[in-house]
């Protein structure tokens, strides 16, 4: 349904493409320097590097939380530079965002948190919404906690609520910024397995993480950032041409 007109050309084009992207902040410092890569549709990949290497900045550019200083960012077939301010919310609905600090609404239940993207998209509350919310909660094994409020959940559970919220709108692309940053190794492994399952179901996934041991064990292609520059790009993520 997402790409009915012109599905053929966009299916071949990558879901994320960076062409010579640089990001310089006003208060000095270049967060990204001449970054180019392509994430093919349906691919799962990792973005790694030390803290401050520019991982978050790269993800923020994809979600249009920021605009690049130079270069082009293309997501889901759209040139982000061409999107006007008022189109940004609609762009974000196509991208599921997951954060290290979860960013959940503390005074709403798990169910309401997960339903938020659907409510924002103007879907009527009712059976259909409840079904989709529960399906998302089921995928992260949290069906039994739907009436709880986030502060009463463990860190791992909160992270899974964040993931359920990110996938409930069936986005084409999932972005996760250090999703296992505060979790112990076993829980981190669970979360990564969850991303792998979502990817197997067809969603493109880009995960930023500095946990190299865990990443290596998953055998997915990698982007390595060093001081804002890509020091390593796996073959699967090299831009065409």
């Amino acid at each position: 349904m997402a790409g009915d007109p012109g599905a053929a050309p966009t299916a071949a084009s990558p879901i994320v493409r960076f062409v010579s992207v640089s990001k310089r902040y006003d208060h000095g410092g270049e967060a990204l320097k001449d970054v180019s890569f392509a994430l093919p549709r349906g691919q799962m990949a990792f973005l790694t590097g030390r803290s401050g290497a520019g991982k978050s900045t790269l993800l923020r550019l994809i979600a249009l939380l920021e605009r690049p200083s130079r270069g082009q960012v293309q997501v889901c077939g759209a040139q982000l530079a061409q999107l006007a301010r008022r189109q940004i919310p609609y762009h974000r609905r196509r991208v599921g965002l997951i954060f290290q600090d979860h960013r959940l609404l503390a005074d709403r239940t798990v169910f309401e948190n997960v339903a938020l993207p659907l409510i924002i998209a103007g879907r009527p509350a009712g059976e259909e919404m409840a079904r989709r919310v529960r399906a998302a909660l089921d995928q992260v094994s949290l069906l039994h906690r739907e009436t709880a409020c986030p502060p009463t959940l463990s860190g791992g559970e909160q992270q899974r609520v964040g993931i359920a919220r990110a996938i409930v709108g069936k986005p084409e692309l999932l972005l996760a910024d250090e999703p296992t940053g505060n979790l112990d190794p076993a829980l981190s492994r669970d979360i990564m397995d969850l991303f792998r399952r979502l990817n197997a179901a067809g969603t493109s996934v880009l995960v930023a993480s500095h946990d190299l041991t865990l990443i290596r064990s998953l055998g997915k292609p990698m982007l390595v950032l060093e001081d804002g520059e890509l020091s390593h790009v796996d073959e699967a993520l090299k831009p065409a041409g």
């Binding site: 939380l65 008022r86 919310p89 609609y90 974000r92 965002l97 960013r103 993207p117 924002i120 919220r165």
Partner: peptide, 15 residues
């Protein structure tokens, strides 16, 4: 912070 979260998941200013 609530407004920021709603913006993150694609809420319009109008919403």
């Amino acid at each position: 912070s609530e407004i920021e979260i709603i913006k993150l998941v694609g809420g319009t200013d109008r919403f």
